[in-house]
Every structure is written in structure tokens, then in C-alpha cells.
Write a protein that binds this DNA or RNA. Structure first.
Lengths: 158, 158
DNA sequence: ATAGGTGCAAAGCATTTGCCGCGGT
DNA sequence: ACCGCGGCAAATGCTTTGCACCTAT
């Protein structure tokens, strides 16, 4: 019962403590984009001997190791997700804060071209859409449970 | 010698104090995307009776009035630019932090379509490219003087 | 054994705000 | 005169860190 993230940690030679195992498990089981506080909440239910400082330290370490990716969807707190389950982007529901993932190869081609035209090599990019759910209910998609509503197109105030 | 931004402030019925006039002028003369600290620095050279709290308050007010737009390019501080001199996007040089603006109608069409496909009305979006300047120097573009290097694709640490 | 991890509380940073005297309109 | 401003310092909210103890390897 070694979680997926835990396996990755071991592969990169990280010392596996009880706390890290728990955090790794929480991350492995998350299908959303939790912030540190949320990770902490989930971790504590599995093992109350975890401090939020450790969550911050672990999440940062895992990002450095390339196991996690940090996101900023506005709202003032960073959110995390496991690295690359396929390249994808996010659409944030401005009313609920829910995040929907999507892919799009066309965009990448375009961005590449634009960067070149300006004399740059494209290193990375950020593409996020903010939308409001359509009136007509028609399709269910990979949404996620919580999070405060994100402000459209800008970071929220502190 | 009423600055462009000052005129906009007056039009929206804002009380024009000395401090606001100075800040408006600094903003009118800026061709880059300064953060609050930078605005403060520039304002103080024109009139030392300005506190950074006022800059924060003014910049926020002007954003609410639609005169300014807040940007988050990573790096932990918000940056501002006058609203809409034509819809455009930003490419941030990961090494110098310089910002290059560009336009692209194609993208907007694509984003619209993607949002629709997911069952959302597109409210706003965020599109930023992070790149490294090409070896071969060939074209000069609208770059800007300062700012610390921005981290590619994520917000910088605090 | 020992390099590195953890908890706790304090420190950091960007940004906001309470209080209160002051200045546009 | 009046209500909104601005200065100052304290408060906030997320994140990082110093310190002393603890634990995988």
C-alpha cells in the first residue's frame, strides 16, 4: 500500500518519514487542486501529528523534485497537483471556484509561433480560462468539490 | 499639464488631491508594468509627501474605476498598467523579468470555443508566455527596464 | 551515528485598515 | 462646513524559518 507519490519520493531518494507518507498518500488520492490548508486538513484526519509547517515544507520539496506542480488560480493561496498527467489547462468557474481541466494542442502550436516571432524561445506558459456555467445543463465533467470563487482574470485581494 | 490618467480620474468624478495627481502622472508616463513599490519610488521623487499606503489605495481605487488593470506575473507582487491600449498579452523574459506585449486574435477565438465546449460562458482569461531571448539578435521590441526575473510558469516564492 | 526532518512559535512580505487630523469641493 | 483623503503604524493572511528535539538510514 505504497502510494503513487510515495513511490516517486523513494525513487528520488527522499527520506520517508511518517508525515511524508501521509502527505504523499493524501496527494495520491486527490483528484482536485488542493491548497496547503486543504492538504493539511486531509492529512490531519489520517494522522494528527502533522503540522502545517511540514505540509508547506513537503509540498515545496516535492515541487523542487518535480513531483508536484504549483498553481496560482488567484485567491491568494497556491494550489498543487501531481506533475503531468498529460499536458492540460484549467478553466475556473468564477462562481464556485471549481476547476475543470482541458487539453488543446492548437494553443501550444500558436504560443510557440508567437514566441518565435518575438525572438524568444518558449520556456513555459500560463493559460487559464475563467467562465460561468451555462444555463442549460447538459454535460457532466471533471469538477472538484470546494474552494472559494476565484476572481476573473486577476489575483484576489489579500 | 493634466496627465492622461488624471483626466480619466476627473471624468469619473474622483477628488483630485496632490498625491493622486502625482500618482496619475507617474502612471501616465509609465510604459512598463510597475509594481506598487516601483510606483511609490517614482512618485516620491516628484513629491516626497506620499506614503506607500496611499499608492496602494489609489492603485486599487483606479482599478475599481476601470482605469488600471492589475497583473500577476509571478514574483509575489501585483503589477499595474493602464486599461486597454488594445487587447494584448504578455511574454515575460525569464532571465530579465522584462515584459513584451503581443496581440493574437486567433487565441481568443480558440478560448471561446473551448469554454463553450465545456459548457461555460467565457468571462475572462489569463494567457502569459515565459521565454528566453534567442541567441541571434535580430529585432528590437517594446521591452521594459527593470524587475526581477520571473519564475517560468509559476508564482515566485515569498 | 548523523544528516536531515519535525513542531512550534516567531519572522517575513505584500497588502489592507483603524484612527484621526487635514484638505478638496 | 463636510466628507472624503492621507499618514502612520498596527493588523492580516499566506508562507518561510530558527531552534531544539527526534528519526530514518
Amino acid at each position: 500500500m505504497e502510494s503513487r507519490i510515495e513511490r516517486l519520493c523513494v525513487e528520488r531518494g527522499l527520506k520517508m518519514t511518517g508525515q511524508r507518507r501521509v502527505i504523499a498518500r493524501v496527494l495520491s488520492e486527490a483528484s482536485d487542486h488542493p491548497d496547503v490548508e486543504e492538504l493539511y486538513r486531509r492529512a490531519v484526519t489520517l494522522d494528527r501529528h502533522i503540522s502545517i509547517a511540514t505540509v508547506y515544507r513537503t509540498v515545496r520539496l516535492l515541487e523542487e523534485k518535480g513531483i508536484l506542480e504549483r498553481r496560482d488560480f488567484g485567491g491568494g493561496r497556491a494550489r498543487y497537483e501531481p506533475t503531468e498527467h498529460g499536458r492540460h489547462y484549467h478553466l475556473i468557474d468564477v462562481e464556485s471556484g471549481r476547476v475543470v481541466e482541458f487539453q488543446d494542442a492548437e494553443h501550444e502550436r500558436l504560443m510557440q509561433i508567437i514566441a518565435e516571432r518575438l525572438g524568444f524561445d518558449l520556456v513555459s506558459w500560463r493559460l487559464e480560462l475563467f467562465g460561468r456555467r451555462r444555463a442549460e445543463p447538459e454535460l457532466a465533467e471533471a469538477a472538484e468539490p470546494a474552494a472559494e470563487p476565484a476572481a476573473p482574470g486577476r489575483s484576489a485581494r489579500r
